[in-house]
Write a protein that binds this DNA or RNA. Sequence first.
DNA 1: TATGTAACCATTTTT
DNA 2: TGGTTACATA
Length: 751
Amino acid sequence: MHDLTSDLTWSQQEAVTHFEGPLLILAAAGSGKTRVITRRVAWLLQQGVRPSNILAITFTNKAAKEMKNRVEALVPGNKVWISTFHSLGVRLLREYAHRLELDRNFTIYDMEDRNRLIKQAIEAAGFDNVKFTPDRIGAAISKAKNQLLTPERYAGTSADFFTQTAAKIYAIYQKKLRDANGMDFDDLLYLPAMALRLLPDLRSELDARFKFVLIDEYQDTNAAQYEIAKKLSIDHRNLCVVGDPDQSIYKWRGSDIRNILDFERDFPDAKVITLDKNYRSTPAILRAASALIEHNTQRKKKALLTDNPEGEPVRVLTFDTGLDEAEMVAKRIKEAVLAGRHTYRDVAVFVRMNALTRTLESAFVKHGVPFQIVKGLAFFERKENKDILAYLRLLVNPQDNISFLRVVNEPTRGIGKVTLDHLQNYAEQHELSLNQALDYLHRIPAIKGKAVAALKDFQKLIHDLRALTDEMPPEELIREVLDRSGYREMLKSSADDEDQDRLANIEELITAASQFTSEDGTRTVRDFLEQITLAGDIDNWDEQQQCVSIMTLHASKGLEFPVVYIIAMEQGILPGERSLHRDEDLEEERRVAFVGLTRAMKELYLCNSRLRDFRGQTLYAIPSMFIQELPPEVQTIDLGSHGGRNPTIDAYRVGVTEPSFDGSAGNHRSISAPKTSPATHQVSTSTEPDGYEVGQIVQHPQYGIGTVTSLSGHGALRKIKIRFAVGGEKTFIASKVQLKVVKKRNSSDAS
DNA sequence: TATGTAACCATTTTT
DNA sequence: TGGTTACATA
């Protein structure tokens, strides 16, 4: 049996070996929190607690998987339930479907699907969706659900017009969602929470089942999640929560920092343990992080202590433009790696928003620096993959109207909007799903001739495919869908090169499916769909790969890297534009920055640039106020081409004709100067053996002469974009396209 | 009904 | 900047 505590500090040991009763662990960044939780699970098992009586909740699927592995290593063969709140929700809803009067084959709708449905609800409610965008209404509904509010109760929260409107749409949306046998993300928390609240038998059953509950990242739980936790801890009050109020960064998603601040109020007998010793970062990094977070007024004061060696000072790097920033960060990383100071895997670049990864991507490609952008779902969110997945969903859940509408005319089958409007009307009047309504085409006089035949063909297609769903593994089913639906044919016969690309993506999807089933033969199509929808950004991150990780600050939570760059630390970006007016929001932005700083183990670079290209225009940027809040010991280095007094920049400054701030706060100022970027540095690299380079002149058999404008991806997914003299820009798969290199790129100076 | 073009618009963070 | 939508046209 493992010795689980001898290598722990006294407070860590205390946390691990606390047996029964509520426990609050306030764990500062880098204080070995994950270790404590895993050890605690193992320790409980060692005390004779049955594995099935333990429930551990993590923030991401990845964290759950890791924790499973670690617990497995300590106590082999255990069956502890470790998952995210959302996965827990799905499993409970499926397991207790009949008691909750639900159909267990429900579809989980992602944001895009949800927005489609909300759009329908907005239209059904008779509001034009110009002012009420699905996004805004969706956010309101999501918030309501996270607070466990029904449409009626939500309507009671405020008399203002928006709330009243959103409440009406919420009601309609919810009905449509149930009719389609669909769940949105919030339902996965809302329904279990409500079930626990309203069904005492079920509640006590589950309370007894999960005698010990552990929750990680507790500072980011919302009301629904807290309700679940509380309701599982009434008869067996062994609720252990771990978190750090300074790292609460999901308020916009409904998480409530009060859950952790008020834990002692809800559980007055809770034991409170503070872990404040940091094992991750250098003192320099911690001093910077502390100085920053101390500007928050709504917080308990807390020190960050470490025994680690002093290390490098924290550095602020200033560049002329966002392009420079991306290029020079790429170059610096490359140089450091070539000099043997660290490997690519040691380095991470954090951004406040996903839009900022674009520039980084091209700079990294250009300089041949291997990288991965950690944005998990991107691949499955491509249209072609979503189409195929929609077919699968429709097979699993015949009531899924959203998926029905998505694929009914994809590929085109001559079923247009008018026909579908008729079908939808009939379905609604008779309380049928669209799929069921197909049985009554003869009763819908408005649909005739060709349209009837087309719909019947579609009905048969789905019917036939459905007969196969339980008989074959997901990957084979996808092949059948692809062939029988005509989707493959559509792409194959297309003249558009991008369509060959799309076909290749679907092949990737098939590979992903077979990988999924090969891990566990019992996995079904439904499991595959569920896994994809619930996968978070970080879940597809491969930390083994020898490359730089690029991700948002939010995605970085819980991770650590020897070297960290945070880019675009500018007013309006970090802190974000929308947070500048409310202290509460500004403090959350500061926590976002704090999370970023505390990921760094040895080296930390905070970057900003004087000019930033933002949605098409060049803006004059002001360094983040958070940079001013750092201690004076932080080194500032100007990497502009003229040591801070850049005539090009000055020219821009003079060129400012409108000193107004676009009506909002004074952050990024609009510039009406030449659009060309003033200081671009080109460095020649050849990143792949194919020898293509940005700037090369090439000849395409069909399109003729063109210039390579960008290269991305690797191997079979490597793409080459070319701007042709005639016909604009086209993208090809590098390995497939037949190109003749006409002229090597002009070698230009690398200033 | 399908497709192409032009205006338009919206922009944080994600399970 | 790029993606979406509305409208006109075939």
